[in-house]
Structure formats: C-alpha cells, structure tokens
C-alpha cells in the first residue's frame, strides 16, 4: 500500500466539557474513497472542521502530502486549501447574489495570481489570466452540468443543483483531497446515483475523497474503506462489508439488543 496522503494522529477536540473528538487516528491513502459514518453528533463534521482549519484541535497532529508532509494543525483555512484540501459543507454555504459561474471563478482564486494593480491596469498577463480562469470555470460549470444556469444566482437554484455548485467550486481549487460533508443529504434517489458516479469519476482522475454520511447505505457501495465514529471515537474501520456487520457499529446505530 502506498504511503498515506493524510495522517490524522490522536486528534482530540473539546468544547468546554464536551469531548467532540477523542484520540481519533485515521489515515487516508491516495486515490481512496473513504466513508466517514456515524450517528448524529458523533463528531464527523467536527473532524472535517479540524482538518480544514475552522477548528483548532487541543491535541494530536495531522500531516498531509506525498513526499513533503505539511503539518496542518495551526494553519489557517486558506493555507490548508493551498496544501490541496477542499471541502463542501453540510448546510450548503453559497455566496448569496453571486452567479454559478462566479462561484466557480472564486474557486480558481488560488490558481491565479493577478494583483490589484495589474488588474486595474489590465496588463497583458492580467487579461490572459482572467481569460484562463473564465475558460476553466466554464469548463467546470459544464462538467458538472450547470451550463444552463451559469449566470443564474446560485442560491435561487433547487437544492440538488446548489450541491453541484458547491462541488464545482471545490473542484476549481484543484484539490488532491476532497472532503464532502453529507453531500447526499436532501437529494432524491436519482441525484444520489448521479453523485456516486461523479465521485467515482473524480477518483478515477486521481482525486482522493473523504465523504461523510450518516446513511450507511449511501456510502457503502462507493467506499473503499469506512471509518465509523461514535461519541468522538473511532469504533470501527475497514472495508464496508466487514464494518456493516461489526457488532459495535450495529449497536451504535440501533442500540443494544
């Protein structure tokens, strides 16, 4: 097995007296799809928030990268994006008033470098880069089937399409690792199927994906490995078929018999 892309080691996050994550150790291998599951309040989103720099864990380390390992703890959110980690949110976070295309253009921010002065002077480089960014954004808008709505305000779209806008924005940063926080929530069965095939397509292009869901049935078919969180602890880990029948997992979901 190739060396891990993301190594989370003994991560602990407390909110006052509540231990949201306790001693969580997870590794993610390149090109893997990992399902992160667990009942509500298990700490799945908290783990994502720690990885993406929105929360700072009290203890533990996180290292990311192939040869040179970036230590993620203590980095700001935008620095973590620069390392190559992008995410979506459980409660979709879109920019009100901005169009679909503008959302994706904002995703290209870290792949472009035009400063304010060159933008105001419209230098040749600035115009060239702006054209590149627009082409790239249009390409992604098309790839995610959003061309018809490119100049529509994203928040006015139906829920399923909003999820796709978020995904396209995250992909515009060209991440190596994509964190999806309950991407299937609120989607109908057809949309869920589409999402699964999108994830598989992205993985086949070399992306590593970590996907949260509390519905085991959604993540099982697509995941190479499943990590189960309960009360902030990893209670099971392994291939979907094995985790599904793990007595501790069944207990966490259904309670003791």
């Amino acid at each position: 097995m190739s060396p891990p892309l993301l190594e989370i080691n003994r991560l602990t996050k407390r909110f006052g007296g509540v231990v949201a994550l306790s001693d969580v150790t997870v590794t993610v291998a390149p090109h893997e799809i990992i399902g992160l599951i667990g009942p509500n309040g298990a700490g799945k989103t908290t783990l994502f928030n720690c990885i993406t720099g929105l929360l700072r864990p009290e203890e533990g380390t996180m290292a990311f990268g192939h040869e040179t390992k970036e230590r993620l703890v203590g980095l700001a959110a935008h620095e973590i994006v620069q390392c190559g980690i992008a995410r979506t949110f459980q409660n979709i976070r879109l920019f009100a008033h901005l169009t679909v295309l503008e959302h994706v253009l904002i995703g290209t921010y870290i792949r472009t470098h035009t400063g304010l002065v060159s933008a105001v002077l419209r230098t040749r480089e600035a115009r060239h880069e702006e054209r590149w960014a627009r082409d790239r954004a249009r390409g992604l808008v098309e790839e995610f089937g959003l061309s018809r709505w490119a100049s529509t305000p994203a928040v006015s779209l139906p829920f399923g399409l909003q999820r796709r806008v978020e995904l396209a924005r995250a992909m515009a940063v060209e991440p190596e690792l994509l964190l999806l926080d309950e991407p299937a929530a609120g989607l109908n069965p057809t949309e869920k199927q589409e999402l699964l095939s999108v994830m598989q397509r992205l993985r086949s292009h070399g992306l590593t994906i970590c996907v949260i869901d509390h519905d085991m049935r959604f993540v099982m078919p697509v995941s190479d490995r499943v990590v189960v969180l309960d009360y902030g602890q990893v209670i099971a880990e392994g291939p979907p078929s094995r985790v599904q029948n793990d007595p501790r997992v069944i207990e966490a979901y259904l309670g003791k018999a």
Partner: peptide, 16 residues
Amino acid sequence: AAIREDEVAAGCAGIN
C-alpha cells in the same frame, strides 16, 4: 464579494 457573502466559505475556497 465572497468575503462579504460568507467569510467561512471564502476561507475554505482558499481566500486569505
């Protein structure tokens, strides 16, 4: 504009 509309999402899109 991204910062104006949602600062957290802006940060997570790589904006300093």
